[in-house]
Amino acid sequence: MLEIKNLRVELEDEDKKILKGVDLSVGTGQVHAIMGPNGSGKSTLSYVLSGRDGYKVTDGTAALNDEDLLDMEPEERAAAGLFLAFQYPVEIPGVGNMTFLRTAVNSQRKARGESEYSAGEFLKIVREKAKSLKIDANMLKRPVNVGFSGGEKKRNEILQMAMLEPKMCILDETDSGLDVDAMKLVAEGVNALRSEGRSFLVITHYQRLLDHIKPDVVHIMADGRIIKTGGPELAMEVEKNGYSDLLKEHGISEEMA
């Protein structure tokens, strides 16, 4: 599904290397987690994959089902099946959540040469999905993320995911700013969307989210590289011992991480 090879990335404005040769392969239907200390490059990886400005790829490749992602505009990557759930979903006053969702879904359908949904068809689908994700229909009427609680914003991301039906979902620190109950609700939503044809890359600082979204593979990222890959037990190890031992093992000082 997702193949990343030797990805090296710098900030565009300053001469700072963030990713220093990332190799990662996520198989179809798999859930991978990336854990790592702050500043290790986890969020940068998610931004670079989804096409945010401000980064310069100096080497390496990233492909989604053999399509070169790095050559595409952000909207093309989305239409190709990539989805990024934001750590901080953006508020857009004056634009209704429903309008936003319909514009997004229809833009992707159009890009793929599929017919666009009418307002009526769309309404029916979005209501069903919202209901199955236990999302209050009132959230659809409000402006995008405006006045939403932290939990509502993250659930709105999951609703978008449900509507857009991506193949590859990247969740960037989806647990940040959530209490345990809100996190559980969001995790339930994600689990409901797990399927054979859909892969997930869950980026998180803490192990607790992985109690609810069970990964197949766990990667530890530090200093712009994946330094260790293992099964779910790796997350437990980090939870117990922190990152220090792992970093030392790889000759990375905690400041560098």
Binding site: G51, P74, L84, F86, V90, I92, G94, F100, T103, A104
Partner: peptide, 27 residues
Amino acid sequence: TALFYLRSRGVPHAEATALLVLSFMAD
């Protein structure tokens, strides 16, 4: 950031800009 958010959902640049202009006009 808002522009990237919309584009990451598949909304093309021009359409995303138009939505943000409407957002600006909303008040």
